[in-house]
Nucleic acid binder design. Sequence first.
DNA 1: CACCAGGACGGCG
DNA 2: CGCCGTCATGGT
Length: 291
Amino acid sequence: MERASVILPSPYALGETLGSGQAFRWRKRGRSYYGFIENAPVRLVQQRETVGVRWAGEGDAAAALSRYLRVDDPMEQIYAGWRGDERLAGAAHRWAGLHLLAQDPWETTVSFIASSASNIPKISRSIEKMCGAFGEPVEFAGETFHAFPSARALAGASGAKLRACELGYRARYVKEAARSVHEGEVDLDAVARMETAAAQAAMVEGLDGVGPKVAACALLFSMRKDDAFPVDRWVQRCVGDWYFNGRAPAAKKCEAWGRERFGARAGYAQQYLFHDARAGARGRAALRSRR
DNA sequence: CACCAGGACGGCG
DNA sequence: CGCCGTCATGGT
């Protein structure tokens, strides 16, 4: 059990970042966030600019948290690059301190296989059920947590038990992708060392249920491939609305456009666009329900 | 009760 | 290639 404390840069929007739809296992209880770093349970407590960490992992908790939260990312520099872009400049202002994360690659890959044509609350429940059914139990802070299941555990899972995790038609994708990783056909450590396009191609080719978007998410949210530009329905729609006069380009073209336009920081641009688009939709939904 | 969701896949033109 | 129907399932 490791304890430490980390000084966050300013700005760092911790709650917004942990709940931004790139990670699915963070839960807020009181002033604490419970989740996993390097697949070991962790509790974070934010007080002003510092975060207290209690971590079940081995090694330097402060270093692990700093890596995970990407506290060294040059946000002001990134925002400066968006000054000529009205939409992104606005999003940078509204969501100042929203960061990308550096999560576990295997967990992130499976999580986004489970994400296809779903929604964030359902994805979270689905992953939680997978962990409960197939993940190793870990005692932490007086309760039992379940680590994210290994490739071996998921490869050996029964189809029925997997589908019980609300995975639907994605269950066979998870099982087959797990087999590919467990048998070494795909090596995520090697993928992480490739440049983005090659890494994406390797994942799409080698992993069932992984297309361009899911691969881009895994690369961006767990392997620091910041030039990746995942295009889901939200991003496709808002890119169409904000940059193409309401006519959304096809997903493939939209991805190429985003990577070309935003370059080495395309992933950050994508995350801010996604966050802004969803926040707008949530606002409109709240407005509707109030009438 | 339609319609949508951090899409992928396979078949068809 | 690009387009389109299909695939479970819960939320709105």
